[in-house]
Amino acid sequence: MVNAEEGIVGKTGRRPGTSTTRQEIVAAAAGSFSSNGYDGTSLRQVAADAGVDPALVRRFFGNKDQLFSAVVAEVFQPDRTVVTLLDGPRSSLGRRLLRYVFDLLGDVDSPGPLLGVIRSAATNEHAASQVREFLAADLLVKLVRALGMDHPDLRATLTASQLVGLAIARYAVRAEALVMADPDELADWIAPTLQRYLTGRAPKRST
């Protein structure tokens, strides 16, 4: 008896769903969002890039919004990332966080999937809401709360604004000074600001 996935392959000659197919689709989608943005990405193109039938993409993810959500979850992996970032001296957390983001962004001339996620968030509300949820709420707020700091939402949002601004300025706008600077040099400038947002004393408001 031929199952639904075998029927798809029988008609199209493309691979059925396997234990790795879902990850391959997510990887293809991440590449498409990075190259084409949210509006320029289609399920059909992602399916072609992954070498599967579009029906299989729809079966796994339903629609483009859900596919983008899967890409964002795969990029950030908030629960695992929080544990990793907390593994080290508290005083160097800002630098570890920045290194994590640089790793996701990749080489400035060959960006990784995070840039596509951020670019998509700049033009599409669903994409923006997903980035807010995973970067600020799921990752950074959890990180700040694990540190026992006050104002977790504000600290997380300020940190996110610094990281997103850096990603856009260096990788999308390609501001020359940022492009030419070595990541370690940038870390010397930026990590103290991230550290202050994450663990510094909250400013006192004048009465």
Rank of each mutant, 00 (worst) to 15 (best):
F61H: 05
Q195C: 06
G51I: 07
S120H: 06
A175D: 05
A202N: 15
N3Q: 10
A169Q: 08
T21R: 03
L104K: 13
Q45A: 15
R174H: 06
P183E: 09
G10V: 04
L194P: 01
L158G: 12
V101L: 08
L163N: 02
L86W: 01
F76D: 01
F61A: 02
F134I: 00
V131L: 14
G165N: 01
L43F: 04
V52C: 08
Q23K: 11
H151R: 15
L93V: 08
A122Q: 11
T157R: 07
R14D: 09
P203D: 13
T12Q: 09
V9Y: 07
T207W: 06
A47E: 08
A47S: 15
Y197M: 09
A48H: 15
M180N: 14
M1D: 05
T12M: 12
R90Y: 11
T159N: 02
V75G: 03
G13V: 14
N124G: 01
L104E: 09
S69R: 14
A160P: 00
Q162S: 07
L154K: 10
R205N: 10
N63H: 10
P16G: 15
F61Q: 01
D188G: 06
F60H: 12
A30T: 06
A47Q: 12
G88S: 07
E176P: 01
A160S: 09
F102E: 02
T123V: 15
A127C: 08
A48R: 15
A27D: 07
A29C: 03
G51H: 05
V2Y: 04
R96A: 10
L147P: 02
S92P: 10
S34R: 14
D87M: 00
D87T: 01
R205E: 14
T18F: 06
R196Y: 12
V75E: 04
V9G: 11
L158M: 14
E24T: 00
D79H: 04
G148K: 13
F60Y: 15
